[in-house]
Amino acid sequence: MIELAKVWKQFDGKRQVTALEDVNLAIERGEMVSIVGPSGSGKSTLLNLIGGLDRPSSGEIRIDSRALGGLADDELTRVRREKIGFVFQFFNLLPTLSCLENVALPLHLQGWPRKKAEARSRELLELVQLGARLEHLPEELSGGERQRVAIARALALDPPILLADEPTGNLDTANGQEILRLVHDLHRRLQATILVVTHDATVAESCPRTIALRDGRVVGDHRR
């Protein structure tokens, strides 16, 4: 499902910084993988590259056997929209939109008719147990509830891949566990390929496979 071959990522500034160095990975369809490593190890960079938010300095990334490298920006965006759902540490919900509207956003971008988009959004919010909070604004929700809305949004177009960057990083223990349970539940039900970047050992150990990064290199790949 996801293949990385000899991927490098360097950032040019006053000094050149190598965020990823010669990364080779293969992740099968339906796998749930945690990516761990200390701060600055390249975890988020790896996720951004897989999600098409950024491009590698060299090497190749394939999603469903399709190389992302040669794609124009619009094409890459469409791949991201249709194949990948993103969940961020800081939720990144639009504060002026209700839960229903936040979840429907990718559908509107895809051109879905309004009624159909709303129906799908309702369905997803029910899935994450927020059916009673459709018209609430993000500021009226707890951290855990906001993250659930973000997860629902990520699933809007039924992507085969879900990328979660520190999904519990901004939550207390109880909420964090709740989100983790939800992610696992979704994994079981939807059979999506899920990558979770985390500092949290509990989160990491709950995943069948853990990839460890240090200083931009893959230093471990452990299957349970």
Partner: peptide
């Protein structure tokens, strides 16, 4: 950034 991450094209 959020819109782009969610799949809004540049256009």
């Amino acid at each position: 950034g959020i819109l782009r991450a969610l799949g809004a094209t540049r256009g």
